[in-house]
Simulated scan of single mutants.
Amino acid sequence: MRLEILTPEEMGSVDRKAVDAGPLDGYGLMQNAGAVVAAAILERFAEAEGFLVLCGPGNNGGDGYVVARLLVERGVQVRLFAETEPAAGSDAARARRDCPVEPKPYSEFEPVERWLVVDALFGAGLSKPVEGREAAIIERVRTSGLPVVSIDLPSGVSGLTGKPLGAAFQADLTVTFFRKKPGHVLVPGRQMCGELLVADIGIAETTLNRAECKTWENHPALWRTALPEVGISAHKYSRGHVAVISGGATSTGAARLA
């Protein structure tokens, strides 16, 4: 069970180690990320009549371009929206080039009934409030009531704190990769993710130095083995004692339950 929680900075280090170690380069990991997102969308939202893909300028947007391409290859309707071109020479720029769908500006975004929104604006590394055009498009999606699938983390939610930074999506499904980030488990980010899927995209477990991991998700698998084992002949007098101290005569409820 994968209980380690990685900050966005720690996840970035894992990504770099994975690329350095191979066999997949950054674009290969992006292809795998887009593939698992597209598969999850088609499995869970087969009734959707089309897909509105929103791409930001970074690697999160690059994942979105891959998703758009794969959905088109499956023969479904896709409309793609992007405002800023990815940085030249980046993996996201390559994904943009390989995507056959020509993006339209955010200003042309229109919700379509019975379609689904793919949120690939910003990932877990977001560090500044979402404002302006991106905030406006998030609000339009919110008022439309369309289902949302977010890549990595609902755009606008801090991957470090789980708190919204300006406008933020409420997702129905969030697909992240390798490990959860704090924003996936801290409220309100935990609620804003909807269903959370942690997907394997080909990053080797050896890229994670568990000795340096600072945060773990609480789960019985972490501490179950530390519990004392009770012998087969144990009885109530050999298992220790408990003293319960309560408040005054009108404040004994918790103590009685204990």
Score class of each variant (00 low, 15 high):
L24M: 15
A95N: 07
T84D: 11
R44S: 13
D20H: 12
A258T: 13
A92G: 09
L146A: 07
Q77K: 15
G28M: 14
L54R: 02
Q31T: 12
V187H: 11
V187K: 08
P164C: 07
G162T: 01
G12N: 11
G162K: 00
G183A: 02
A21G: 13
R140T: 03
E110W: 01
A88I: 05
E102R: 12
E205G: 10
R179Y: 11
R44C: 10
P8T: 09
V130D: 00
G248E: 08
L186P: 00
D172K: 09
G194K: 04
V118K: 03
Y106H: 01
G132F: 00
E205W: 07
P105S: 08
P8E: 05
S150I: 02
Q191W: 10
E139R: 00
D152Q: 05
G58R: 06
R179P: 00
A87Q: 14
L146G: 05
F81Q: 04
G26S: 15
I41V: 15
V14Y: 08
I41S: 03
T215P: 01
V76F: 05
D200H: 10
G26R: 13
P147T: 07
E229T: 12
K128T: 03
A221T: 10
T252Y: 03
A35E: 12
I201W: 01
M1E: 14
P103N: 10
R97S: 15
E195D: 09
I137C: 00
G58F: 02
I137L: 10
T161H: 11
P228E: 07
A18K: 08
I232H: 06
A226E: 14
G145Q: 03
N59L: 07
R69C: 09
V141N: 02
P111F: 13
F122W: 08
V14M: 11
V198C: 10
T225C: 10
A46I: 13
P154C: 04
G202V: 07
